[in-house]
Design a protein around this nucleic acid. Structure first.
Lengths: 170, 170
DNA sequence: TTGGTCATGTAATTCGTTACATGATTGA
DNA sequence: TCAATCATGTAACGAATTACATGACCAA
């Protein structure tokens, strides 16, 4: 149900077209809530149908710019304050760990080495991203906080994978 | 696609019925790959149809015990060694952080306080679980490694949320 | 004039959730 | 005997992915 709120959230900043939103999903939100083009357009049509957003302008090439309505902002605030975030589940990375016993210790350590590399790359990617983030609007402030989460997460996972590799006997 | 591999992985340890597997999803795998009863039974029927598992015994009350076939074990190993784990995405918790700017700073800090509590409870839950884990079979060894991940994750998230709360001005 | 980007939409399929539906076995 | 647990299955719906399909605009 949260793609809806992701769209409302992005539109709370400023009006945007489906195409604009797609770009922003590909950059800032990609690490947190990926969405495909087809999903975004379908959801925007639905949201406009229920009055949470509205077509605020039309441009060339059939461009439709959507803006958040008062009702939409209320829904966004309601979601943020009155509903509990769902526990984050479904980690492909962790699921595999459970079954490393069917592999040789060497193969298991190889998998953990991959995770270490993945974490290092994730860390570096976010570090570079942090350098390009500017501005002091609310999304920059909270985007920076979310980014810090990503940095800490990757560092934690790297250290954990190193520890785990050490636990697997020869 | 990973419910399939979660089932193959659990069956690689020992044969089990749908009911048995459901119980194990509710306990050990719940934090990593939740699955519902209906999903499990449907997937088992599909896996038996493709020959990755087979009905190894039938018991009272229509109980069907499934066992991994050689083909199933190959598929499990293939998945573990030849396919890359998908990046973990879709965090409701993090998505909300992006949009805390539409709330008052006080409400935003309240949200982060909730996250701190959620992380503390998650940590405690896993710590208690760690005490009950016994045995030294492969799933206990790797289960313990996965559990350590959970502990570190919750500790990391707690510290991050405390840091973040400090960043939000009055 | 043509290739790249902007721009939107729909169809098919799979995956996941909730709810419904049924019934056998067992231990207190 | 009766409640709890064991045990399986299907239907309906919603969410997500992939693929298909189309076309306008703009700059080199």
């Amino acid at each position: 149900m949260s793609l809806k709120h992701a769209l409302l959230g992005l539109l709370s900043e400023r009006p945007a077209s489906g195409y604009d939103l797609l770009k922003r999903f590909e950059t800032s939100l990609a690490n947190v809530w990926p969405a495909t083009q087809s999903q975004i357009y379908t959801e925007l049509t639905k949201l406009a149908g229920t009055g949470l957003i509205t077509v605020s302008a039309e441009g060339p090439r059939g461009r439709k710019e959507y803006a958040l309505t008062g009702e939409g902002l209320s829904e966004l605030r309601y979601w943020l304050t009155e509903t509990k975030p769902q526990r984050n589940t479904r980690s492909d990375v962790l699921l595999r760990v459970f079954f490393l016993g069917v592999l040789t210790p060497e193969q298991a350590r190889e998998y953990l080495a991959e995770l270490i590399e993945m974490s290092e790359q994730g860390y570096e990617h976010l570090r570079r991203l942090a350098e390009t983030v500017d501005g002091d609007d609310s999304l920059a402030v909270y985007g920076r906080i979310a980014l810090e989460y990503g940095l800490r997460f990757n560092a934690m996972r790297r250290e954990w994978a190193e520890w785990a590799a050490g636990r697997i006997g020869q």
